[in-house]
């Protein structure tokens, strides 16, 4: 058997090679100086990496991590304050103020995207189209007539383009 790839040897050193690879290498490696040396080197590297000194975790870090449970996400804090606000008179004022701020912020949102804005039709055009459409309609439309909504949309698009 020729020497395996480094990947196979590396997996074998980790006891992660397939059963077939393991059987072949178990027979080959002890008699092969190159493979034996490589396996010894992998083991030595592993030992040297494990032996690198590492400081212990600072005790105050544990305390700091445990303190995370006292933290609440912003929406939870907001909901708690709102709940408390409705329960107390002074809090109710604060909750109302918060609601006003929310409305103001909401009202100052960016205008709708261009695709939506293009569909806006002036009210005068809408009224004129409506009058014409209402006058042109028979009192009892035939059953084969197209749905009024389609007519209206097509008519409005034409009106908007002219306008």
């Amino acid at each position: 058997m020729s020497c395996p790839s480094f990947e196979t040897l590396s997996a074998y050193a980790d006891r992660e090679a397939s059963p077939a690879e393991t059987a072949l290498l178990a027979a080959h490696a002890p008699a092969c100086p190159a493979c034996s040396r490589m396996l010894a080197l992998i083991a030595a590297e592993r030992r040297s990496l494990s032996a690198l000194p590492v400081p212990s975790m600072p005790p105050d870090l544990t305390a700091s991590l445990l303190a995370l449970t006292a933290r609440r996400p912003w929406w939870e804090t907001l909901l708690s304050e709102l709940r408390a606000g409705f329960a107390q008179p002074t809090g109710a004022v604060a909750a109302a103020a918060l609601a006003v701020v929310a409305v103001l912020v909401w009202g100052r949102r960016e205008p709708p995207p261009a695709a939506v804005a293009e569909l806006e039709v002036p009210v005068e055009v809408l009224m004129a189209a409506h009058r014409r459409y209402a006058l042109s309609m028979p009192l009892t439309p035939p059953e084969s007539a197209p749905p009024p909504a389609q007519l209206q949309v097509a008519g409005l698009a034409a009106e908007r383009d002219v306008y």
Binding site: C3, F6, L9, A34, R37, M38, L41, A44, E45, S48
Partner: peptide, 21 residues
């Protein structure tokens, strides 16, 4: 690329092993 240990630090394995120990 796919490496084989034959072209890896040729002749240096013993020195590396000794250095690590």
């Amino acid at each position: 690329g796919e490496d084989t240990y034959a072209d890896l630090v040729p002749g240096r394995e013993d020195a590396l092993l000794e250095a690590l120990e």
